[in-house]
Amino acid sequence: MARMEKFYVETLRKLETEIHELEIEADCSIQRIEIIVNLIVNSLYKLKMFVLEKGFKNTDEEIHFFKYKKPVIVSKLIYYNTIYKIETKKTYDVKLIIKYLNICISVIKSP
């Protein structure tokens, strides 16, 4: 196994294990999502530093990395960042929720 492939597999495996351990918790707290986003960003940074230090053995390895490997980790960042945005915009004010639901019901009932 090439050193790039080995480093990538180890980085991805570690990241997925850490995410899985954090997701075992029942709640979907904003702090937990922040931790996961930071883990992903750190993994991407480690990959970047490895690439800058070691480089690729050839053009095919470089293309394969940027086309297939890196997007796997970036997609996790996009996913958890989206969850973070949803959770931070969510309201916990019961009166506002009831008001919103009443408006939705009235819109549905109106002809």
Rank of each mutant, 00 (worst) to 15 (best):
N38G: 06
E87Y: 08
N38D: 14
E25G: 11
I78L: 10
I19T: 02
I103W: 02
K95Y: 11
L101G: 00
I35D: 14
P71I: 04
N81P: 05
S75F: 09
Y8L: 07
A2N: 14
S29A: 08
I98L: 05
L47W: 11
G55N: 09
K48N: 08
M1C: 12
M4S: 14
Y8H: 05
E61F: 01
N42I: 03
K57R: 11
P71N: 03
K54M: 04
F7P: 10
F65S: 05
E16M: 08
I35W: 10
I105V: 06
I24Q: 08
K99L: 04
K54I: 00
F7E: 15
N42H: 09
I19W: 01
F65W: 04
I105E: 08
D60V: 06
R13V: 13
Y92L: 15
V37D: 03
T17S: 04
I103E: 07
F65R: 04
A2F: 09
I105H: 09
K46P: 00
I86V: 13
I36C: 13
V9H: 13
E62G: 09
V41E: 04
Y80I: 08
V94M: 08
V51I: 05
K57F: 09
V72A: 11
M4R: 15
K76C: 11
K54T: 03
Y100G: 02
A2D: 13
V74T: 05
E5A: 10
E23D: 09
L22Y: 06
